[in-house]
């Protein structure tokens, strides 16, 4: 697959990232917001790997590895938070969660 330029991957990554951002901004379900975040992380990973290939540097892939680990940790804590919030409020609608309103 050497004939596909890196720029294409970057563009694809940008589209996926934007879709993730839209998910965060448009959906009210906390779980879907969370999944959108995962989508954004994943699109960033794609760029990392693409440039690693472009420059022949494995460091990019190592970073992807770390991003995945951190994402795993984030998912564990984030889901725990969602479960706890659901217990307390019987809802995971982020629009119901506005105790920090000034």
């Amino acid at each position: 697959m050497q004939s596909v330029p890196t720029v294409y991957y970057v563009a694809l990554s940008a589209i996926l990232f934007t879709l993730g951002v839209l998910g965060v901004l448009l959906r009210r379900n906390a779980l879907i917001i969370f999944m959108s975040i995962e989508l954004m992380l994943n699109s960033a990973n794609l760029v990392f790997v693409a440039f690693a290939r472009e420059f022949g540097q494995q460091a990019g892939q190592v970073f992807v590895f770390f991003v995945m680990t951190v994402a795993a940790a984030e998912v564990a804590v984030g889901l725990a938070l969602i479960v706890t919030i659901f217990r307390a409020k019987r809802s995971i609608n982020v629009d119901d969660i506005n105790q920090l309103k000034g």
């Binding site: 770390f66 680990t69 951190v70 795993a72 940790a73 984030e74 564990a76 804590v77 889901l79 725990a80 938070l81 479960v83 706890t84």
Partner: peptide, 16 residues
């Protein structure tokens, strides 16, 4: 990173 995972695990257990 392994430490981070451990902390996250403990955090998840404590939170839930």
């Amino acid at each position: 990173t392994s430490l981070l995972l451990l902390v996250a695990m403990i955090g998840a257990v404590v939170l839930t």
